[in-house]
Design a protein around this nucleic acid. Sequence first.
DNA 1: TGACAATGTGAACATTTGTACACTATACTG
DNA 2: CAGTATAGTGTACAAATGTTCACATTGTCA
Lengths: 201, 201
Amino acid sequence: MAYSPPGQMRERVYRFFRERALDGEPPTVREVQEAFGFRSVNAARRHLEALVADGRLDKRPGRARGYRLTGLVPPAQQVPVLGRVQAGALTTAVEDLDGYVPVEAGVAEECFALRVQGESMRDAGILPGDLVIVRRQDTANDGDIVVALVGDEATVKRLRRRQGRVELHPENPDFEPIVVEDHGEFVGILGKVIEVRRRLV
Amino acid sequence: MAYSPPGQMRERVYRFFRERALDGEPPTVREVQEAFGFRSVNAARRHLEALVADGRLDKRPGRARGYRLTGLVPPAQQVPVLGRVQAGALTTAVEDLDGYVPVEAGVAEECFALRVQGESMRDAGILPGDLVIVRRQDTANDGDIVVALVGDEATVKRLRRRQGRVELHPENPDFEPIVVEDHGEFVGILGKVIEVRRRLV
DNA sequence: TGACAATGTGAACATTTGTACACTATACTG
DNA sequence: CAGTATAGTGTACAAATGTTCACATTGTCA
């Protein structure tokens, strides 16, 4: 095999190893060898050992498939994406399941995801079509971005507490704040938005 | 070892195996043997083979640590979060790893994540501190949002092709487009932004 | 109770996989 | 341009690990 500039092949080996390890199957020395076409096992092994010495890989000496990624790869959990959210969604069963999205475990407890409709939160960088990850809770602090049920419709707004009143503020001058007292309709907080995601195809 | 009622020990073996596998390290036949105090490797092996026959485990015959969980075709894959991105990031440079984030399986091939700095893409809803998921590729189409290396710095911009020229457009009137010819510096495309994420604590 | 299948023991064997050592080739630096 | 650290080759060995075969033990059920 052609000789590579120092460090360059090491990087490629590391990325190959990481790809495979994140797929759940850390490669063996010989699998690395074959992947890069080394004629000697030792070429692959040298790179792996160097990566261990650099602290970029871990290993259990002697064990088969003993090389590992360093650090913790946080386990992921799936969170349901709800199509529509209707009154009573706090307690009743999931209405309209629209798939799942992965979230880091730990924050996934009591969460659901929701697709954003409308431009009312545009200036907060929340656009139509975005997916918001929501932690279920029925109260929220001033300044939190929440999903609230206004009448029959779930809406994403920033919650403001003003002199004891609760207001739902859009982040777009074209829209008006919703003040709870002004409103005959039921207003309930479904949860707090903890993450915003946008797919760009 | 005491003889167990049929199927009972099998269940315990499965749970043990699953625990270890979810930890990222599926046990070997002998590790199962030791965990349960079998005096023979074969006792452990029988259970594992039976679990495979039941479709509860998978295996690659002959390979070390070849038994795997089935069904758990993980719907999520982990993608590395890179701290700084340097010149040569596509192949040469040593990455500055900053953890992992879960991404829907299927899109995770050849991807990495990057934290956004600066306000230049504000009007596209990409804010400082956001995490962009990037698919590595060295070309992109007109209109794609890309991560490009301008001089020594990685930057997120919208790519425009104008009369054969490549331009990098911000989405914020306070910033100026970068036209490649105007620039003595090296401009290279690292990849295309396929997702934007923002954590709201 | 007796047959039979499932469970467990024991001892090998074959393959996979990590490890070691001696040597050659190339890239980088002063 | 010389020297040295890094990269790669070739070969062999040892430990880890999966596999196989023969036999003993026990639970289950007709």
